[in-house]
């Protein structure tokens, strides 16, 4: 990436106008159809659960999104390890994209979980369940990782620091998980059995959950590819220096009409470095 110049970078010469391609369009359409099927299965075709009734339906999206958030965490860690080994922009961008999608899915899982918990447990949040607290902590760790990614500066330095942070992510998740588990169970036995303990899960419900996993994984992959490409393009834009961009804007302002020229002169005097 350090050898890439504006002339050899495809993004600079044949600048793509978006992050879509045939693959992502097919993938996106498949995911969209899948979401439709999941809505049908989850809300209409599958029977209500014995103990929780219709409440259990939220599990068809909640469980897969939480799982995919943990997967994102491990993809970020893997991308970080590979970046530290290979020093390639590809792995760095993968770690970044995956962390952002992971934060999104984890936030979604926390929100859907809270919506489910309010009528079931009578409260939006409990501290008794290690999974809840671990997930919330992972969300915070991912937000910290993303905050470091957003700090302006040398891309290589940022990539290296982010990579070390990414490597530590799963270690922290394991440590948090262990401590939260003990935190409660050393003093009191788990009082809550999510998903009704020994309740029977009917075949169609299990199938709906399976479809939920497949569909949300498709959405996850689709988002990941787009976010990856967007991050890649962001980096290309970053590489083109600010002065180049200002020159272009000024040239545009001279060519187009008086309104644009007025705008151009407004940024003209103090804008350049």
């Amino acid at each position: 990436m350090t050898t890439a110049t504006n002339e050899t970078t495809p993004a600079a010469t044949g600048a793509p106008r978006g992050t879509g391609s045939t693959t992502t369009r097919v993938l996106g359409l498949t995911a969209l159809v899948g979401v439709g099927v999941l809505v049908g299965l989850g809300l209409f075709w599958s029977p209500p659960e014995e103990v929780q009734g219709d409440l259990a339906r939220i599990m068809y999206v909640h469980v897969p999104s939480a799982s995919l958030a943990y997967l994102s965490c491990f993809v970020t860690a893997a991308g970080s390890v590979m970046y530290l080994w290979k020093r390639s922009e590809w792995w760095d961008t993968l770690a970044y994209a995956s962390a952002e999608i992971g934060a999104l899915f984890m936030a979604f899982a926390c929100i859907t979980g809270s919506i489910w918990a309010r009528p079931t447990w009578g409260t939006f949040w409990v501290w008794d369940d290690a999974r809840l607290v671990t997930s919330a902590m992972l969300l915070l760790l991912l937000l910290g990782y993303l905050a470091l990614r957003k700090v302006p500066g040398d891309p290589d330095v940022r990539a290296k620091r982010s990579a070390w942070l990414g490597v530590l992510l799963p270690i922290n998740v394991v440590l948090v998980r262990q401590s939260v588990e003990w935190w409660r169970t050393l003093h009191q036995k788990a009082t809550l059995q999510p998903l009704g303990g020994g309740a029977k899960i009917e075949d169609l419900m299990l199938f709906s959950l399976f479809v939920g996993f497949v569909v949300l994984t498709l959405v996850w992959v689709w988002l990941l590819i787009h976010r990856f490409r967007l991050a890649w393009l962001e980096r290309r834009v970053e590489e083109r220096e600010l002065s180049v961009a200002i020159d272009e804007r000024r040239a545009e302002a001279r060519v187009s009409g008086s309104g644009a020229a007025r705008f151009g002169s407004a940024i003209g005097p103090g804008g350049g470095p």
Binding site: M137, L140, L141, L143, G144, A147, L148, V151, G153, R161, W164, L165, L168, N172, L175, V176, Q178, S179, V180
Partner: peptide, 23 residues
């Protein structure tokens, strides 16, 4: 050291470190 040298280090360090120190 991850946050050192950055302009935003004062605000970034607590966000990175405190969740990690939860255990």
């Amino acid at each position: 050291v991850l946050a050192a040298g950055l302009r935003v280090r004062e605000t970034l360090l607590p966000l990175l470190l405190l969740p990690v120190l939860a255990p």
